[in-house]
Structure formats: C-alpha cells, structure tokens
C-alpha cells in the first residue's frame, strides 16, 4: 500500500474535545439467507463525534446501507452495540433524519404537503405560522417553490430527491443519515445540492453520516472518510480530510484533493477486486 504523502491529519471540525454522539461497538449483523445466516457486517467499531461529517465508501452491496440502517434504528445488530449518547438505539426517530435511496416522497401529498408533513406531527410542536415560514424557506432553498401545489407524479427524479431533502431538513434533525442522496441527480444539480447541504450544515450544525459511491463527493463534503471492505463489511481504513469548513469549489484545486482521491480510489478498487474474487470463488 503506497503511503499517502504529507497529509495534514488534523480534523478541522470535530476536535477531540467534542463529545462522541454515535458509537458502533463490535457491531456484527447477520441476515437470514437460503443456506444459513449471511454475515453482512463483521465487527465494525466506529465513533462519530458531534459535528462530524463521516462518509462511508465501499463496493456495492458490501453492507454500507445496513450500517446506516443500524444508526437509523431500522436494524438491530446481531451482536455488539449501537449507541446514541451512550444509550442503545431502539428505533427510528426525528432526531435522526434519513434520506433514503428511493426517496420515499409521499405521492398523495403536494410538494408543500410533503415538506410540512414532519412539522404537522405531534412531535414537532410548531405553530401554524412557524410551519408556513419553515416550509417556504426550504421549498425556496431546494428550488421547488414553483411546484408547491404539484404532486410528486409531476416531478422529475431529481426534483423528488430535492423534495425528500427538504422534507428531512424541515424537521431540523440533529443527525442526518444519507444513503446516496445525490445519486440520481445530474452533475450540475448534484454539485448544487452538495453546496446546499454544506450551507445548511453551516447554519444549522448537524452530525452527518453519508453513504456514497463518489470519492469526489466524499472528499468534498466530509471531515472523515471510512473505507469499508467487500461483504462482510469491515473497516478498511479511516481517513481524515484535511480541509476546513466552510468549504467551496476551490477545494477541488487543492493538490491534496487529487492525492486523496487517488489514494481512496486505489483502496476502493482493491475492495472491488476482492469482491470479484469472492464471487468467482463461490461459483
């Protein structure tokens, strides 16, 4: 493995004094399969501190989404612990907003209806006026104001993804768990959404876990990158991103960006190769 030359490994956002909010402790996950339980996550230890932006990157089908599902509360570890502020994660909640790969926008509600859905719940405790203000703000932020009274069937895939984002942002969760949220977008919109995310984080301060296939995206957005192995998922390596916040496009020009990209690409490619060998071996 080629050593990465002279990277500043001081995380710019989450200083060691920031408390650990999320902790995965020796987490193993087995899923039932045709011929016995299939190990999907194999002993993952991961601490995420307040304010960090952690990207998880690895080959397709390696178990990244399962990791996100554990933190979201949809899956319980088969062994090991998943802790939020030292308490085991029991289930989903509005403190951990999730952006699903399949968007899940509510088809029976308009754009406005979707975004205000979380704000109309008992858990939200916002007044009608506040609600309108919040909805208008995020609708404008996502560029959906012109479609306020349209149903999702009239929206393109990219617009539905933006709607899902607005809906999640509106309830101001402390944590954002994003499963390839920008995958369906064209390059232009993708960049715009990435910048918007950074903007929202700058004003609202969240802790983010992002699953992505794009090394560029991971480096651009994150403070730390976790490279995960082919199934069963283990931590291959954790890389600190040397850039501070707020970030802008200029970061792409920084020579360290290219170095990081090359390094991480190599690691991920090795995992894809391992996965291919695995597949060949089982045939």
């Amino acid at each position: 493995m080629t050593p990465v030359p002279a990277l500043d490994t001081q995380p710019m956002v989450a200083l060691p004094s920031f408390p650990v909010r999320l902790r995965l402790e020796s987490v193993h996950v087995d899923f039932p399969a045709a011929n016995g339980p299939m190990r999907v996550v194999d002993g993952i230890d991961l601490d995420i501190r307040q304010g960090e932006f952690v990207s998880i990157i690895g080959p397709s089908g390696c178990g990244k989404t399962t990791l996100l599902n554990i933190v979201a509360g949809f899956v319980k570890p088969s062994s090991g612990r998943a802790l939020l502020d030292d308490a085991p994660i029991e289930g989903p909640g509005p403190d951990r907003g999730v952006i699903f790969q399949e968007y899940g926008v509510f088809p029976w509600l308009t754009v406005r209806g979707n975004i205000e859905f979380g704000l109309r719940l008992a858990a939200a405790r916002v007044s009608g006026a506040q609600r309108t203000e919040i909805v208008d703000r995020y609708m404008a932020l996502m560029g959906l104001a012109d479609f306020a009274d349209h149903h999702p069937k009239h929206l393109s895939g990219g617009m539905r993804q933006r709607l899902a984002l607005a809906r999640a942002y509106a309830v101001k969760p402390e944590f954002l768990l994003m499963d390839e949220p920008f995958g369906a977008l064209d390059a232009q919109t993708r960049t715009a959404m990435q910048d918007l995310l950074l903007q929202v984080l700058a004003t609202e301060g969240k802790t983010v876990m992002l699953i992505t296939h794009s090394v560029d995206e991971a480096i651009y957005l994150s403070s730390r990158i976790v490279v995960v192995t082919a199934r069963p998922a283990r931590v291959r390596t954790i890389i600190d991103v040397p850039f501070g916040y707020p970030r802008d496009e200029a970061v792409h020009e920084d020579p360290r960006f290219a170095l990081l990209r090359a390094h991480i690409r190599t690691l991920v490619m090795k995992e894809y190769e391992a996965q291919a060998r695995q597949a060949a071996a089982t045939e």
């Binding site: 909640g93 907003g97 999730v98 699903f100 899940g104 859905f117 979380g118 719940l121 858990a123």
Partner: peptide
C-alpha cells in the same frame, strides 16, 4: 418505505395510521 420515512420524521403509530396508511 412510507412507514419508515414517517417514523424518521417523528410520527407515532396513530399518526402513521391516519396520515400514511389511510391515504394509501
């Protein structure tokens, strides 16, 4: 997925029934 989404937005069981299941 609609039930999962509504849980992540903070809906309780009664709200999931009335606001998600019934419209569907």
């Amino acid at each position: 997925i609609y039930v999962q989404v509504s849980r992540t937005l903070g809906a309780n069981d009664a709200e999931i029934f009335a606001k998600v299941i019934v419209p569907l």
